[in-house]
């Protein structure tokens, strides 16, 4: 089996559309490529869209899971780079949800030629509050408790985790529909991904970003506040911040039309 086929199978890659511009859509923690399905129909007519699952998520090949490699976001960034290499991609527009935004930064600094721009949906470079002036939203004890809850409810949650935090007052219809995105994952792998996600601090990388970035931040998001968006815009060398008047941490699922519209304008200009 050649490298291309190996990576396609390993990361469950699917390619849609055939436009000149390539979008690489990277899912966040606790889900898989299915989370892009609300945005996908409007993107396919214009772009080549590449979807994948990180090793350990969705329908990736679990046999490739390696505790050491995936104990930090670098391991996930390596997945992204290997996908670019295997598919011979260059000048990709990388769209990452939540933690994948930072995975995209890590990957794009390591191998700039693969990328053209980065699109971040509800990103956070660090979820911890770091005194005196960074407010990631969580005290260490909160995050430890969150991981503890994952451990203590492990029999159920990894099979029934909806894409982290959709916003408390979403309609039940939407919650019902989104709940089709429940991601059944191995709880130990999911917990390890959670640790890599929630305890990392990649703020120091922002200033080294090599590509223009657009940030979509939700006006009311329990995981990544507008302040975090502002912080990132200040730190990144070239960034646009787009606050969307909506609730929750999954704009690409709850507001796909608005995100698509801004995305197309951004790519077009």
């Amino acid at each position: 089996m050649d490298l291309r086929q190996k990576i396609i199978t390993r990361n469950n890659i699917s390619i849609h559309g055939s436009g000149e511009t390539t979008l690489l859509l990277a899912h966040g923690f606790g889900c898989d490529q299915n989370m892009w399905r609300f945005m996908l129909p409007a993107l396919i007519p214009h772009y080549k869209v590449v979807l994948f699952d990180y090793v350990g998520s969705g329908n990736s090949q679990l046999s490739y899971y390696n505790q050491e490699r995936y104990s930090s976001l670098q391991g996930y960034a390596q997945d992204v780079l290997e996908i670019c290499e295997a598919l011979n991609l260059s000048d990709v527009i990388f769209v990452g949800h939540s933690v994948s935004s930072m995975i995209g930064i890590i990957a794009s600094i390591k191998q700039p030629a693969y990328f053209k721009r980065l699109v971040m949906v509800c990103p956070s470079p660090c979820f911890l509050n770091i005194k005196p002036d960074y407010f990631g939203g969580f005290e260490k004890v909160d995050l430890e408790e969150l991981l503890g809850l994952m451990d203590k409810n492990y029999i159920g949650w990894a099979n029934y985790l909806s894409p982290l935090v959709m916003g408390g007052s979403q309609s039940d219809e939407l919650i019902g529909e989104l709940s089709g995105s429940f991601c059944s994952t191995d709880p130990l792998i999911a917990k390890s991904f959670a640790e890599a996600t929630f305890f990392s601090d990649y703020r120091y990388l922002l200033k080294d970003a090599k590509h223009p970035v657009i940030i979509f931040q939700s006006a009311r998001d329990a995981l990544a506040s507008v302040d975090i968006g502002n912080y990132m815009q200040q730190q990144l060398p070239e960034a646009k911040l787009c606050i969307i008047d909506a609730e929750g941490h999954c704009l690409h699922m709850t507001q796909p039309e608005i995100v698509n519209q801004h995305l197309r304008e951004y790519i077009g200009d």
């Binding site: 606790g30 909160d142 909806s162 982290l164």
Partner: peptide, 11 residues
């Protein structure tokens, strides 16, 4: 608690 609220919303 904060983390329990997140757990409530996502699970």
């Amino acid at each position: 608690t904060h983390s329990s609220r997140i757990f409530c919303e996502s699970y």
